[in-house]
Amino acid sequence: MNANQTQGAAAAAPIPRIALSGIKKRFGSVEAIRGVDLALYPGECVGLVGDNAAGKSTLTKIISGTYVPDEGTISINGEPVRFATPADARKHHIEMVYQDLSLCDTIDVAGNLYLGREPMNGIFLDRKAMRDGARAMLERLEIKIPNLDALVAQLSGGQRQSIAIARAAAFDPQVLIMDEPTSALAVKEVEAVLDLINRVKAKGVTVVLITHRLQDLFNVCDRITVMYEGLKVAERKIADTDLTDLVSLIVGKGHGMGGHA
């Protein structure tokens, strides 16, 4: 499935849900992102792969407003935007599952799921609504957590990761970014996450998936973007590539960039 099909008949040249152009980001003397263009369309899943330190996480954190790029522009549905904080990106329905999960260990499960958008009852937190909502969210994702009053610190690595995923997926995102969402999950839970990606895609959500489990990409992605040392070096439709091709691109053989590195 490619972008033209999902966009429908309305536009001949579809407008990307989110488009990056000429993005650069520097940390001290290291140029982490050296000018990347990327267009993401509604209802597609794009796999972002690359070696460690290729700039995958940095690029996705720029989309989610966590980092502000030094150069380049971002536009959403054709309108240029500027994200100064993650709150700005959240307002545009961009949600992200961070690699470090970004959970607050000393807050309970429901509190973490609703962090930053707590339901209120007057000036007080509506704890009942939070708990009921949390239970519903977790049930939809088939996540079993017996005690919603438990602090996140008391949960297992897989449960913590599930909570981070549920939090990003539950609030009707338009762009859902997942940075290594399955690293701590068991087989069954990984299947549930891949199912989730396919479900939200069908609803028109744009998904960006970073993972080292390359076989997963072939289950859910429409396109794969390969990054190498801060550059986007290749873009492949899923039908035009295979594991061997991807691996050689990731290690820097297939695109002629690896030689002088």
């Binding site: 989610s64 709150a87 999960l101 000393t106 962090l115 209120m120």
Partner: peptide, 25 residues
């Protein structure tokens, strides 16, 4: 115990960057 302010105070102490990423000022 009961307000957003109190909740965010705890969140910042637990993980300030996570709180910021959740859109908290």
């Amino acid at each position: 115990w009961g307000t957003r302010f109190g909740r965010y105070v705890t969140a910042i102490g637990a993980n300030q960057e996570a709180a910021r990423r959740s859109g908290i000022s």
